[in-house]
Write a protein that binds this DNA or RNA. Structure first.
Length: 563
RNA sequence: UGGGGUGUAGCCAAGCGGUAAGGCAACGGCCUUUGGAGCCGUCAUUCCCAGGUUCGAAUCCUGGCACCCCAGCCA
């Protein structure tokens, strides 16, 4: 997975200040946790991680790193009906790939099931929890509404002994699924609905990916999360804004139990234009076949971005640039793309690749001559050296780099015009050959031998430089061009799928690469000069390479043309 | 007249009573053998609105408005 062609450099700078770092610095100053900083990243293994999770990962691990603390990886696996081992594997891979290390601290909420059970018994003994026989529907009715208080469950006043007995029998499997719950006894009239006697345990016969069939009762998120934080001695429990309302409950449990108090702090989750970022939606895209899988290069998943050609550095840069705050916001996808450009510009090898080829014949170039021309590997970084590129009489250039009738400000090849062939000569278009259908089959040019790149007489300026590939040396390849998955900036609502971009994938079968590219391995990233950044796909075979376009280069010409 | 959260430029986001950081985008110019990159410059007389306090308010107070979250035995 490591790309050894890419040099180790660092596009990242000092992390941005944000309100969470401020709180932490304050706590450090007042010695609130004895100088400790201990965070956790708590994914539920019910899907693949996406760019929104990356924001959280960078926050939690980044803060731990910067304040000399620790960050645990904890799987929040309290719902066996949705969770799978495949997901935990992918999550671990993605966190590692992003560059973070949880060392030996790989934890699971399910590790604490026994302890959580004991805690629940404690609460029952304190008279703070009870076994409730209300059905799901009835619980809902009793809960009241947003504007009306709820009513006490008729089972609320069972004795401690009865609750203890019932709860134990729940665990033993004496009652059918859904027939009973354990509930906290708080306040059915609380304006915060989370405090209206929330469910702590439900009866659920499902095989858990780690505990198997050992349990038939499972803790709810609210009951498991804070106690897990406490058990792990987490100092700052960072989560997203939708949990703000849960904080009073988080604190209540810890307080009633009299255990170590972690502190929950909420921040705004990431939204991205032209993409969906909810696991539910992403799952649907995968299951309905709108994409090829969780790692389809168009997916905003970490694995999709990785396959697309994104680097961990670019994602971390992005996370840093968007910042952390409490106001809900939507970052522009272009900003993500820009982070990749910034990273790859400095590190990626350059190469020449013609995606939509048209043949050029240099009339005055000797028929069988081949020259090995010197080409720089990365103009941003001399240490990356240079390579040889073969030049001969018949070449391919990009169809787009030739116009029979040039528009205004078009500086590339057209009849009578001169352009430089990158690292080679200045050529002039003399004529055009067309086939029976009127399509251009060949562009006839002459070259000026005095203009060879690097020679003392090569200084003559022409308005533009284009890339090329020698026809007889070209490596044929497939290139997959990706565009955004959605056509709408905010693909929301019931019919969000109607905004799927039907042209989000274009496959080019007849691309011509310079020979040095034949040694590319899956995951290798290059800048195809003037075309964009490309990444060799995992579908590549030794003699049948496939490249994904990760992102185009910035294109001011495209902008001019639009006007 | 349920509770909670949030409003600073096109998009992010600092700002914590002393006179609106920074990044991205955009727009000019320079430079360029990638219409890339780089460099230089421009880009909020005003911080959701209205009052008030103060020598001084994006910051404090009062009253509005807008948007988001919550009625899973999901997380």
């Amino acid at each position: 997975m490591k790309n050894d062609i890419i040099q180790e450099t660092n596009v990242e700078v000092a992390p941005r200040k944000n309100f969470i770092r401020e709180i932490i610095e304050d706590d450090l100053k007042t010695n609130k946790y004895g100088g400790r900083v201990h965070t956790r990243f708590p994914p539920e293994p019910n899907g693949y991680l996406h760019i929104g999770h990356a924001k959280s990962i960078c926050l939690n691990f980044g803060v731990a790193r910067d304040y000399n603390g620790k960050c645990n990886l904890r799987f929040d696996d309290t719902n066996p009906t949705k969770e799978e081992q495949e997901y935990v594997e992918s999550i671990k891979e993605d966190v590692k790939w992003l560059g973070y290390d949880w060392e030996e601290r790989e934890f699971y909420a399910s590790d604490y099931f026994e302890k959580l059970y004991e805690f629940a018994v404690q609460l029952i003994k304190k008279g703070k929890a009870f076994v409730c026989d209300l059905s799901g529907d009835q619980v809902r009715q009793y809960r009241g509404t947003l504007t009306e208080p709820g009513k006490n469950s008729p089972y609320r006043d069972r004795t401690v002994e009865e609750n203890l007995d019932l709860f134990e029998r729940m665990r033993k499997g004496e009652f059918p699924d859904g027939s009973k719950t354990l509930r906290a006894k708080i306040d059915m009239a609380a304006p915060n609905i989370n405090m209206r006697d929330p469910v702590m345990y439900r009866i659920l016969r499902a095989t858990h990916h780690r505990t198997g069939d050992k349990w038939c009762i499972y803790p709810t998120y609210d009951w498991a999360h804070g106690q897990s934080d406490s058990i792990e001695n987490i100092t700052h429990s960072l989560c997203t804004l939708e949990f703000v309302d849960h904080r009073p409950l988080y604190d209540w449990y810890l307080e009633q139990l009299g255990v170590y108090r972690s502190q929950q702090i909420e921040f705004a989750k990431l939204n991205l234009t032209y993409t969906v970022l909810s696991k539910r939606n992403l799952l649907q895209l995968v299951e309905e076949g709108s994409v090829s899988g969780w790692n389809d290069p168009r997916m905003p998943t970490i694995s999709g971005l990785r396959r697309r050609g994104y680097t961990p550095e670019s994602i971390r840069l992005f996370a840093d640039r968007i910042g952390i705050a409490r106001s809900e916001s939507t970052a522009e996808v272009t900003q993500l793309e820009d982070c990749l450009r910034e990273d790859l510009n400095r590190r990626a090898l350059r190469a020449m690749a013609v995606l939509r080829p048209v043949k050029v014949v240099i009339e005055n170039y000797p028929d069988d001559q081949v020259e090995e021309l010197e080409a720089v590997n990365n103009p941003e970084d001399a240490s990356m050296g240079s390579r040889k590129v073969p030049f001969s009489k018949v070449l391919y250039i990009e169809q787009d780099d030739f116009r029979e009738v040039p528009p205004k400000k078009y500086w590339r090849l057209f009849p009578g015009n001169e352009v430089r062939l990158r690292y080679a000569y200045i050529i002039k278009c003399e004529s055009v050959v067309k086939n029976s259908k009127g399509e251009i089959s060949e562009i006839r040019c002459t070259y000026d031998p005095a203009t060879k790149s690097g020679s003392s007489e090569s200084q003559r300026k022409v308005k533009s430089t284009i890339h090329w590939v020698s026809a007889k040396h070209a490596v044929d390849t497939e290139v997959r061009l990706y565009d955004r998955l959605f056509t709408e900036e905010f693909p929301a609502g019931e019919n969000w799928r109607q905004y799927l971009n039907r042209n989000s994938l274009e496959v080019l079968k007849n691309c011509k690469l310079e020979p040095s590219l034949s040694k590319a391995k899956p995951g290798d990233k290059y800048q195809f000069e003037r075309m964009g950044y490309f990444c060799a796909d995992e579908d590549s075979k030794p003699n049948a390479l496939i490249f994904n376009r990760a992102v185009t280069l910035r294109d001011t010409w495209a902008k001019i043309e639009k006007k």
